[in-house]
């Protein structure tokens, strides 16, 4: 990674300009994914430049705006965990943030990074789906359910920067991550659920973080048990180094049952 050019814009405007004018450039925030891949040479195609967005003032902070909770794309998970607004209006996001890595990663990881990386295991992504969050970029607002387009693919244009995430207020979302270890774990199943409106969002069970359509339909009919049954058909889990398809399927149903306080299996 010795020949990767490091660019440090002074503000958002400068960042947008640099990002649009620099070929093969990737935004760098806390570096929790990108720095690992750059060092190991596993980022394909290898970028020629990184744009350091970590310190851009407009991308920091957690605030109330236009009846939504707005979180800067480069705000750290620690910033969310310490934010009174986040605790009040998006407690499930705070809960998710607390399960990510440990202090070192929470101090550096960001929502912008989690979104741009678009890992199916991204811990905040089901939460954002369950909240019907909006991804604000340098040019538009993208509803979260249109953001993930394929395995590690997003709706972002090649020169489009994530600026913030907005979360509607007043929704109750329950969250649970299953990751084998109590800290420093990548999820095997990660889930966020809202009763009203019915949202069942799950990570690590398909090539993208997904909304479980059949489960949500059952939940909309107030049929919790039906949702638990239906969710098995919504997911596409695989066997990989972390877990098995069978386990992910069983745990998805168990966790959904637990989050919905649905009656146990007969």
């Amino acid at each position: 990674m010795h020949d990767v050019t490091y660019l440090r814009p002074t503000d958002l405007k400068d960042a947008v300009r640099l990002y649009r004018s620099t070929p093969e450039c990737r935004p760098l925030a806390g570096g929790t994914d990108l720095m690992v891949m750059l060092h190991a040479g596993t980022f394909r195609p290898a970028p020629r430049a990184v744009l350091d967005v970590w310190s851009i003032p407009e991308l920091k902070g957690v605030r109330r705006t236009q009846g939504m909770l707005e979180i800067g794309a480069a705000e750290s998970y620690t910033g969310m965990i310490r934010s009174r607004d986040a605790h009040e209006h998006a407690p499930a996001l705070v809960a998710a943030a607390r399960t990510i890595g440990a202090a070192q990663i929470q101090n550096r990881g960001t929502l912008g990074g989690n979104l741009a990386n678009a890992s199916p295991a991204g811990d905040t992504l089901p939460v954002l789906l369950a909240y019907d969050a909006v991804v604000v970029t340098d040019r538009r607002a993208i509803p979260i359910d249109q953001f993930f387009t394929g395995y590690r693919r997003t709706a972002l244009q090649p020169d489009e920067l994530i600026v913030a995430v907005r979360i509607p207020l007043g929704r109750h979302v329950a969250f649970r991550k299953v990751g084998t270890r109590a800290a420093q774990a990548i999820s095997k199943v990660v889930m966020a659920v809202s009763r009203s409106p019915a949202r069942v969002a799950i990570g690590s069970v398909a090539e993208v973080p997904l909304r479980a359509a059949r489960a949500e339909a059952a939940l909309a009919r107030n049929d919790a048990a039906g949702a638990v049954g239906a969710v098995a058909d919504d997911i596409r889990p695989i066997n990989d180094v972390r877990s098995t398809a069978a386990y992910r399927r069983a745990v998805t149903q168990n966790v959904l049952r637990e989050l919905l306080h649905a009656p146990p299996r007969p």
Binding site: Y6, R8, L28, G30, G31, T32, M35, V36, H39, V50, D52, W54, S55, T78, A103, Q104, I105, N107, R108
Partner: peptide, 12 residues
């Protein structure tokens, strides 16, 4: 704040 220095670009 505690961070992993393997994840920080020195420019930062």
């Amino acid at each position: 704040e505690v961070v992993d220095s393997c994840l920080v670009a020195v420019g930062q």
